[in-house]
C-alpha cells in the first residue's frame, strides 16, 4: 500500500471527521438547539419589547455563537484521544499541521457554518432590522472559523485533563474577545448604515493569522497532552 501524501491524508482526516459527525446527526443539531434555547432566554430575561431586543440583537447573537462554539470545542479531540486514534495521528509521517487543520475545518463545517446559515432566523426572532442580516451571516462565517481555530488550542491543551470543561472556557474566552468585538461591530455598523467591510476585513485578517499560527499551537499542545 502506498503512503498517502500530506494533502490526500488531511483530506481523508477531514472526510473521516465529517462522516463521524454525519453518523450522529443529533450531535450536529445540538449546537443549533442550544442557539435557539439561549435566544429564547433573552426575551424572557430582558422583556419582550421589540425595540430593546433589536438594540441588543447583534451582541446577543454573537455571544451565543461564541458560547456554542466554546461548548463544542471541548469535544474536538476528546474521542480520538480516549480511543488512541490521536496517538496514531501524531505518529503518522504526514505533517500534523495539515491534519490538525482538517480537524478544525470539520468542526467549523458542522458548527460555525450551520450557525451562520441559520442565524437570520434568530435575527428575525429578535427583531433585528434586515439591513444587518448580510453582515451578521458574513461576520459569523469568518468569525466562527477563527473561534474554531482558537477553541482547538484550548481543546488540545485540556484534552488529557479529566476536569477540562470549565478550564477550557477560562483559557480561551479571553482569546475569543477580539473576535466578538469586531464581529458584533460589523453587524452594528451595517445596522446604522455604515460600511461593515472594514470590520469583516479585520475578521478575515484574524482568520489568516489564525490559520497560519493556530495549527502550530494545536499540534504542540496535542503532543504535550499525549505525552503527559
Amino acid at each position: 500500500m502506498t503512503r498517502p501524501g500530506a494533502l490526500a491524508f488531511s483530506a481523508r482526516v477531514l472526510r473521516r471527521q465529517l462522516v463521524l459527525a454525519v453518523r450522529r446527526p443529533v450531535e450536529i443539531g445540538n449546537p443549533l438547539l442550544f442557539f435557539a434555547m439561549v435566544v429564547a432566554l433573552f426575551p424572557l430575561g430582558l422583556g419582550p419589547a421589540p425595540a430593546q431586543l433589536s438594540l441588543f440583537a447583534p451582541g446577543i447573537l454573537w455571544i451565543i455563537a461564541l458560547l456554542s462554539n466554546l461548548l463544542t470545542s471541548d469535544a474536538v479531540f476528546r474521542g480520538d484521544f480516549e480511543d488512541g486514534a490521536l496517538e496514531q495521528l501524531l505518529l503518522a509521517p504526514q505533517p500534523l499541521f495539515l491534519s490538525v487543520l482538517a480537524y478544525i475545518c470539520a468542526h467549523w463545517l458542522v458548527t460555525g457554518l450551520l450557525l451562520a446559515l441559520v442565524s437570520p432566523v434568530f435575527a428575525v426572532m429578535l427583531h433585528m432590522a434586515p439591513a444587518g442580516i448580510a453582515a451578521l451571516v458574513l461576520s459569523l462565517l469568518l468569525g466562527t472559523a477563527v473561534l474554531s481555530l482558537v477553541g482547538g488550542i484550548g481543546a488540545a491543551l485540556t484534552v488529557g485533563l479529566r476536569r477540562g470543561g470549565m478550564l477550557i472556557s477560562l483559557l480561551i474566552l479571553p482569546l475569543y474577545m477580539p473576535v466578538l468585538i469586531f464581529g458584533s461591530a460589523a453587524v452594528q455598523a451595517a445596522l446604522s448604515g455604515l460600511a461593515a467591510g472594514p470590520y469583516l476585513a479585520i475578521l478575515g485578517a484574524m482568520l489568516c493569522l489564525g490559520m497560519a499560527l493556530a495549527p502550530l499551537a494545536i499540534a504542540a499542545a496535542l503532543r504535550i497532552s499525549v505525552d503527559a
Partner: peptide, 16 residues
C-alpha cells in the same frame, strides 16, 4: 507537561 502546556498558552496569549 503543565509547564509546556502553559508555555503554549502564554505564547498564544502574547497576541494580546
Amino acid at each position: 507537561a503543565a509547564g509546556k502546556a502553559c508555555a503554549v498558552l502564554s505564547l498564544v496569549g502574547m497576541v494580546n
